[in-house]
C-alpha cells in the first residue's frame, strides 16, 4: 500500500505548484505510515532530477507516444495503471486546471474510490477540510472509500523541499490509447513576469481601471516590484487581460507575501482567491468597498493619482537601497 502523487510538467519543466501536493503526501505518510511515490509525464532531465530529490519511494515516468500531450482520458489510464502497481490507497495532485480535470476522471477507473477537491488541511487518514460557498464556510469531510483521491489547494501547503536521499526513477510504458479525444493546440499566455501562483508579490487590477489602455499604470508598478499581474473577473470578461490572469473562486488561488488590489471592489468570489495573502493592500476610491474589510492597509483614493505616485516613490526607494 502506498500514496501516489501526480506531478505536473509544462514543456518538460516541473510545475512548482505540484510541490504542495508532495507536502500533503508527506503529512499523510506520517499519519498512515505509508510511503509515497511520484508519477509524472514528459519530464525534462532537470525535472527528473528535481523529482528524485523529494523523498519519494520511487519516481515513475509514464511513457507513450499518446502521452506527449495531456488529455485527461489518456493520463487517467496511465495513473490508474501505476496506482495499481504501487497499490495506491491515496492519489494526490495539486488543484491546478490539470489536477481539477484529471483527478475526478480517475474515480471510474479505480474501483471503490471517491474524491475530495481542494483539501486545505489533513485531520486524519480519512478526514480532510475544504472550503465551500466561495470560502465563506469550511467543511470537514470524511471519505470512507478504500481508495481516496484528493486534490490539494496549492496555497494551503508549503512547497516540498529537497532531501538527501535520491529516489530511483522508473519508466513505465503505457499501451492503452483513448482515441475519442484529440489535443489540438495550447495557446500559451506569454509573459516576462513571474507566474501568478508562484509570485511573492501580486499586483491585481479591477474594473476601476476603466480602459485597457490604463493597465500600463499597473504594469509599471508591477515592474518596480518584480510582481506578477492578476485581475478580477470584470477585467478578464471585458477582454482587457487574458483569462488565466483571473484571481478568485473560479480563477487562480494565490497567497503571495504582498497582494495589492487596485480598483477591485472585493466581491466574495474575488476574495476567495487571495485572502490568504500575507499582506493585503487595497486602493479604491470608495471607502465602503468590501475589499477594505480584509485589507491590512487601505488607501481610499483615486487610483489614477496614487498608483503612478506610488510607482515613482518605490522606484526611488529601490534605487536608494541598491545604491
Amino acid at each position: 500500500m502506498s500514496i501516489l502523487v501526480i506531478a505536473e510538467t509544462r514543456n518538460g519543466e516541473l510545475k512548482k505548484a505540484s510541490l504542495s501536493a508532495v507536502t500533503c503526501a508527506k503529512i499523510l505518510a506520517e499519519k498512515t505510515g505509508l510511503n509515497y511515490n511520484i508519477l509524472t509525464f514528459e519530464p525534462s532531465e532537470k525535472a527528473k532530477e528535481e523529482l528524485s530529490q523529494l523523498g519519494a519511494e520511487k519516481v515513475f515516468v509514464a511513457k507513450g507516444e499518446h502521452l506527449k500531450n495531456y488529455t485527461a482520458e489518456n493520463y487517467a489510464i496511465a495513473v490508474s495503471e501505476i496506482a495499481k502497481k504501487v497499490d495506491a490507497k491515496y492519489i494526490l495532485a495539486t488543484a491546478t486546471t490539470f489536477g481539477k480535470d484529471l483527478l475526478p476522471r480517475l474515480v471510474s477507473k479505480i474501483p471503490n474510490s471517491a474524491m475530495i477537491s481542494e483539501v486545505i488541511e489533513v485531520i486524519d487518514a480519512e478526514t480532510f477540510k475544504k472550503l465551500v460557498y466561495a470560502g465563506d464556510i469550511i467543511s470537514t469531510l470524511k471519505i470512507k472509500s478504500e481508495k481516496k483521491i484528493l486534490s490539494v489547494r496549492g496555497t494551503a501547503f508549503d512547497k516540498a523541499g529537497k532531501v538527501d536521499k535520491k529516489s530511483d526513477v522508473v519508466e513505465e510504458e503505457i499501451k492503452e490509447n483513448y482515441t475519442r479525444k484529440r489535443f489540438i493546440t495550447l495557446e500559451e499566455t506569454k509573459s516576462e513576469r513571474p507566474e501568478l501562483t508562484e509570485a511573492s508579490i501580486v499586483v491585481s487590477v479591477g474594473r476601476g481601471i476603466k480602459d485597457p489602455e490604463n493597465i500600463k499604470i499597473v504594469e509599471e508598478l508591477a515592474d518596480v516590484l518584480g510582481a506578477a499581474i492578476g485581475a478580477s473577473r470584470a477585467v478578464v470578461d471585458a477582454g482587457w487581460l487574458p483569462n488565466d490572469f483571473q484571481v478568485g473562486q473560479t480563477g487562480k488561488t494565490v497567497a503571495p507575501q504582498l497582494y495589492i488590489a487596485i480598483g477591485i471592489s472585493g466581491a466574495i468570489q474575488h476574495v476567495a482567491g487571495m485572502k490568504d495573502s500575507k499582506v493585503i493592500v487595497a486602493i479604491n476610491k470608495d471607502p465602503e468597498a468590501p475589499i477594505f474589510q480584509i485589507a491590512d492597509i487601505g488607501l481610499v483614493a483615486d487610483l489614477f493619482q496614487v498608483v503612478p505616485e506610488l510607482t515613482q516613490k518605490l522606484k526611488k526607494l529601490k534605487q536608494e537601497s541598491a545604491g
Binding site: R10, F98, E187, T189, D244
Partner: peptide, 12 residues
C-alpha cells in the same frame, strides 16, 4: 480555459 492559456481539443 487552462492555467497556462487556452487549450483546444477535439472530442467525438
Amino acid at each position: 480555459e487552462v492555467d497556462g492559456g487556452l487549450e483546444t481539443v477535439e472530442v467525438d
